[in-house]
Write a protein that binds this DNA or RNA. Structure first.
Lengths: 259, 259
DNA sequence: CGGCGCATTGAACTTATTCAAACGATGTGG
DNA sequence: CCACATCGTTTGAATAAGTTCAATGCGCCG
């Protein structure tokens, strides 16, 4: 259930070399110059430890643009051609897969530092929608250029593979939740997962603001929004959490782990 | 829900060059020389189209051993060090992830031509058990050597990435099933998936022998074995299938698709 | 033949869903 | 500034879906 990811740069930093080679697809516009991965606040979340200066320089050449996505807008949609993967720099996203009959399921919630779009590699088109849960900024990583970089820098190749494998592991953990756990266990596991990810990002692991609705959360956890709400209410009654709407404070981490 | 995979060779073909560099982990013993990917019956399942002769030659250097796994034995276990990925040449496997509390869930069923072990890349140890459902043979693909090959042959790099991405897509499809579908829909989707995979392998898409128990199938589909059994009985009653134990004949593909 | 593992079926029970109503926050227009 | 509409959330009661428990059946191997 770890959340390995990619790249990116400090949101404020300006891009020093405007003449750097920087092709990106029209669909990714509007774009802007991004800062450097080497100085990015999310570096420790996205990148492997021990990348040397030269590797960072190469990486900065590949990831040269970023894009703003307003709350509710999509970063990409299922069926559209795949060109790039994305790293969340600011904000958060949900990804949604749709069934032909109209049903749909949230399969991910991504925070700053997480990578999106790996599903698109398989047959050169995205298989899901990525929707911003709040006004967000992503780094754009043209995939064919990343592949070139990976064939030249072994540490980057390693990292990409670990990232994709990590996604496979993450999803099989989710399948375990959906297939085996009761509603209360799933909600508890979700809260613990968010807690851990917030902690990894330097935020409080016991107090955070969920960006998704109960409906979106229910979709992710394979239950109805009413059930999610009841579980929150129950945890509140049992003094495991203090939830006021989307603001959650974890009161008893240990008992929450004990399901 | 496609099932992309890797490599391998005809089970019968002998390895011509015994002096070829062929390091493999002790855990992978007992091994034997494998044949060539270039002449493998599963080639079209595992490999990208249009790989040239030189690429196949390189691949044959990487995949030089195979291993027999008796029914019920494990190919690898959760927690053991990761060195290689595997391609099923003969037989079939289930993979099982275990929860600390003892519960476990089947997350995959692999047929000949499918690749196993990609989960282990993430942190250099396997995260699940792979158990043979019948006496089987796998090709062993030392991962660090595959990575080297991928950095040199662009088509192989492409293929590895597509394979991993395909696994991510496959799993999100599963999540959709587990999160959104009713028991009857899941069983129907499973039968259709097997049907399609049998067809891709040149077998009858309407008549096949399931290698797993109702319990294993229930675990995979997030329901109890009794529920699986009831769904089979119901489909039988409605003349969608003709099932005698594990032998399944699909009578009405269209109505089965209609859930 | 007897025993074992797996599968099927029924009936009672548990869990989550559905439907419905009401509440609270937020934002808009009068 | 208040009234009102909207959107998301909470809660209750009835219903449906799947589970649990238990009994029986079937096929295979020793």
């Amino acid at each position: 259930m770890s959340s390995s990811t990619f790249s990116l740069s400090d949101a404020g930093a300006a891009c020093p070399g405007d003449a750097r080679p920087c092709a990106t697809s029209a669909a990714d516009l509007p774009t802007e110059q991004s800062g450097r991965c080497s100085s990015c606040a999310m570096r420790n979340i996205c990148m492997p430890a021990g990348l040397d200066a030269q590797a960072y320089a190469r990486l900065d050449e590949v990831i040269c643009t970023s894009r703003r996505v307003a709350r509710g807008d999509s970063l990409f949609r299922a069926g559209t051609p795949f060109h790039s993967i994305y790293a969340v720099r600011v904000g958060s996203f949900k990804t949604v897969v749709a069934h032909p009959d109209g049903r749909q399921q949230v399969t991910r919630f991504d925070l700053a530092g997480d990578a999106l779009g790996l599903d698109g590699i398989h047959d050169d088109r995205h298989t899901c929608d990525a929707i911003a849960l709040e006004d967000s900024v992503v780094c754009i990583i043209p995939f064919h250029r990343l592949e070139t970089l990976c064939s030249e820098v072994r540490a980057m190749q390693r990292h990409l593979h670990k990232m994709m494998s990590g996604e496979i592991v993450r999803e099989s953990g989710l399948m375990m939740q959906l297939g085996n756990m009761r509603a209360d266990e799933r909600v508890a596991a979700f809260l613990l997962n968010i807690s851990q990810r917030m902690k990894a990002r330097g935020y409080s692991p016991t107090e955070f603001n969920l960006r998704m609705t109960r409906d979106e959360l229910g979709s992710y956890l394979g239950m109805k929004l009413e059930t999610v709400s009841r579980m929150f209410s129950r945890f509140q009654r049992e003094a495991l959490i203090d939830a006021r709407g989307r603001l959650v404070r974890i009161l008893d981490l240990e008992r929450l782990k004990a399901v």
